[in-house]
């Protein structure tokens, strides 16, 4: 009995903490979304409100009237993230397939190398990367944001870890006996088996590409090429000073697609994080 009572108290405590954390996670976004619908005057009187107001369109007009074009950022981010994700997942799976399925002399050396370079962040290579892009005249090219994702060492590592138990080599052998070409086998047999891993990695690749600020900030100078995070960073500028409603509106526009997608895919995303760590 005593134990039961203690368990109950602990449980109540756990729920209280979890609810507090939930509020902390959601409150900033709630304030943001509500303020996006309130006028600047309302915000100045009370910066926190829980009930939306009616100035949404007004804020939107102020925002877009100041050369803030969320559609351009959205389009560019979508292009970059989609193609980067396609490149990253496809070529990482292909590379992992090469490591898992075939025996080649440099295989182990290659894989050790992949693991060694897994953690090199973009920041430390940026000076050279920028100079290279500059010399090639590609500073404003979205290709420079897409193509590097063909080499995603950590994703190769993940794909290999997943592929070893999930893709029996017998299947590959069987396909060969049926006369299938290697590339065909990979596309038609291996890829579908890897679907769950590809799905989770695709989500992460997409999100990290969508959220990347550093590389686009260094490379892109043309407003038509700006991605969403750079658009967002413009909201800090003087021209939005005192236009609180419009700033919140701009922030909301950049976040809303992410939140909606997240709510639909949350299960898979959270499971994917867990999957990655178990394997890694």
């Amino acid at each position: 009995m005593l134990d039961n009572k203690e368990t109950k108290i602990i449980k109540v405590f756990i729920y209280i903490v979890c609810v507090i954390l939930t509020v902390l996670s959601i409150l900033p976004f709630w304030i943001m979304i509500v303020n996006a619908t309130r006028s600047t005057t309302q915000i100045q009187q009370h910066a926190v409100a829980f009930i939306p107001s009616t100035y949404m369109m007004n804020n939107f007009k102020i925002l877009t009237g100041k050369s803030f074009n969320p559609m351009v950022g959205f389009k560019n981010s979508l292009i970059v993230s989609t193609f980067a994700t396609l490149c990253a997942t496809y070529f990482s799976t292909l590379t992992a397939y090469a490591v898992v399925v075939y025996d080649w002399k440099l295989k182990n050396a290659f894989f050790s190398f992949v693991m060694a370079v897994m953690m090199i962040p973009a920041q430390v290579t940026m000076i050279g990367f920028y100079q290279m892009a500059y010399k090639l005249g590609l500073t404003n090219s979205l290709l420079m944001l897409i193509l590097p994702s063909v080499a995603a060492p950590s994703m190769v590592f993940f794909m290999r870890q997943y592929m070893i138990p999930s893709l029996p080599l017998e299947i590959v052998q069987a396909a060969r006996i049926d006369g299938a070409k290697e590339f065909y086998t990979f596309n038609i047999i291996a890829l579908p088996i890897m679907k769950p891993a590809i799905a989770t990695q695709a989500i992460f690749s997409f999100v990290s590409s969508w959220n990347n600020l550093f590389t686009p900030m260094v490379l892109l100078t043309k407003q038509e090429k700006y991605t969403m995070p750079i658009m967002v960073s413009l909201l800090k500028g003087d021209i939005y000073k005192t236009e609180y409603g419009a700033v919140y509106m701009g922030l909301t526009l950049t976040v809303l697609p992410l939140i909606i997608v997240y709510l639909f895919l949350a299960k898979y995303i959270v499971a994917g994080v867990a999957l990655g760590s178990v394997k890694g």
Binding site: L94, G128, L147, E182
Partner: peptide, 30 residues
């Protein structure tokens, strides 16, 4: 089949050399 191992890592290797390794050496050189 081992040659396919090499063939399949070509895209990764090229992208890696071009977008990671070269910039690292270039950065170091600078």
């Amino acid at each position: 089949y081992s040659k396919f191992g090499y063939i399949f890592v070509i895209p990764f290797t090229i992208a890696f050399l071009f977008f990671m390794l070269y910039p690292i050496f270039y950065t170091a050189f600078i």
